[in-house]
Design a protein around this nucleic acid. Structure first.
Lengths: 212, 212
DNA sequence: GACAATCCGGAACGCGGTTCCGTATCGTTT
DNA sequence: AAACGATACGGAACCGCGTTCCGGATTGTC
């Protein structure tokens, strides 16, 4: 009942020291990432966790997997927020339009990216490992974004044909440099970008949609 | 007459081998940058130029200076294009609006960034050296962008208060990843961003400005 | 308690940036 | 033209970081 695949004979359970070290690594990584960003040297994380280099590579063969393990639940939270916003905007009694929902959600996403040192840079990096990190985050987030876009599109608030993937990627890119450049505030440009989504030529929401 | 500052006794002219090597390095860097991007290993450039590592570091102590030396004239060309567009848009007989001028100029700028492998990434990097590269490009380009923005603003085409520096930086950021991600086309998002500049609520240019 | 599966630690290798200095080359002076 | 500083060159060497690998310790099972 609690077994795995029939083709996977559950030879033995994971050893306790393995589980212990994995937890230590997660804690250490969270600490180090918050302090020095996701580009911190592997050795630093290993030292913080009090384990050897081999250990960290065995548990998390790529930096990506470690980042995902550390931030994964926050990504899921972001997904949840998006779905809640979607439901709210769809409800007949809601005052918030789908476009408003999109605005709020984008803001949440930016919060997430901005509070993680170097995450935006990492996502934008052309390093193969980070491409997978990128892929993971986007696989979860793009569908939500796509739904929000579709809803706003249906209500005639935004110009159709905008690709959710590109939008997410663009927003992530715009976050680059927020902490090394006092003159640059990502939210300004993201605000402009989102404004650019709106249908052009009309100041009012939608002609055909129901509006109180 | 052809001397320098009085406080600078022209001790001796630069040696011919120094000048020769500098030229070789510029040629080699241009080749290597075009092939492998601006992040190519220093050793590669030195090898391509047929010089030692010491030589490249003597002529260009930082990678930034080498990049500037290689691409500097293209930056100047971009400045010139901007000023020409500005003059055209200001001319009474011109059909192009200041906003059109801005559009064209941004497109040129994107051309420049995109055709240089990894330039966008470099500009977005939080590395100290690249911050200066960034600073150099922006010192030249931001004033032009600011003038274009101001002109479009005066004609009532765009929302006021947009900072040229942030816009340039944002556009540069949006270019990141164009060559490692087939699904991402920077121009789509840049188009959206620029659309976001337009005054909201009105589909027509300006109420008070002179319009043919 | 013994045995094998599992896991650990850290030495070791490769790569790239950067520094440093013995040597070669150049321009000038005599 | 020969000698002599000034200048520039080359590349060995060092450091930091990512990654691999394996001898040995630890754990679960019999």
């Amino acid at each position: 009942m609690t077994e795995q695949d029939p083709a996977t004979p559950p030879r033995r359970a994971r050893r306790v020291d393995a589980r212990r070290n994995e937890q230590r690594l997660l804690d250490a990584a969270a600490t180090v990432f918050a302090t020095s960003g996701v580009d911190a040297p592997i050795r630093t994380i290993a030292a913080e966790a009090g384990v050897g280099l081999g250990t960290i590579y065995r548990h998390f063969p790529t930096r990506t997997e470690l980042v995902v393990a550390v931030y994964g639940h926050q990504v899921e939270a972001c997904v949840d927020v998006g779905q809640r916003l979607l439901a709210e905007a769809a409800s007949a009694t809601s005052a918030a339009s789908p476009f408003d929902a999109l605005l709020v959600w984008v803001d949440r996403f930016v919060d997430f990216v901005i509070t993680k040192h170097g995450l935006a840079d990492a996502l934008g990096s052309d390093d193969a490992g980070f491409q997978r990190l990128h892929a993971y985050f986007l696989d979860r987030l793009v569908p939500v974004c796509a739904e929000l876009l579709a809803a706003a599109e249906r209500s005639g608030q935004i110009t159709p044909g905008v690709d959710a993937y590109e939008l997410m990627r663009g927003i992530g890119n715009l976050c680059v440099g927020h902490e090394t450049d006092a003159r640059y505030d990502p939210r300004h440009m993201i605000g402009l970008l989102v404004r650019g989504l709106r249908v052009s030529g009309t100041g009012s929401p939608a002609p055909s949609s129901a509006n109180p």
